[in-house]
């Protein structure tokens, strides 16, 4: 497209249907301990699937 470039193809909605395995790291444990950000957490299911 000429006027709009879409930089990602997100999959948020389908992740609601699939429901979330809950195996990922708790966000505050990873680095900050004083604030919350979930957008930068890695998905465990994804990494597991990739390993297969």
């Amino acid at each position: 497209m000429k006027h709009v470039k879409t930089i990602n193809l997100p999959d948020l909605k389908s992740s609601l249907r699939e429901g979330g395995c809950g195996e990922c790291q708790t966000s505050c444990q990873s680095a900050c301990k004083t604030s919350c950000t979930v957008g930068n957490q890695a998905c465990q299911r994804e990494s597991k699937d990739q390993k297969k």
Binding site: L9, P10, L12, L16, E18, G20, C24, C28, V38, E46
Partner: peptide, 16 residues
Amino acid sequence: DLSQGPCIKKRLAGCG
């Protein structure tokens, strides 16, 4: 990770 970040459930749960 804009395409394969955490699932929506995680995003709603926040810090937990």
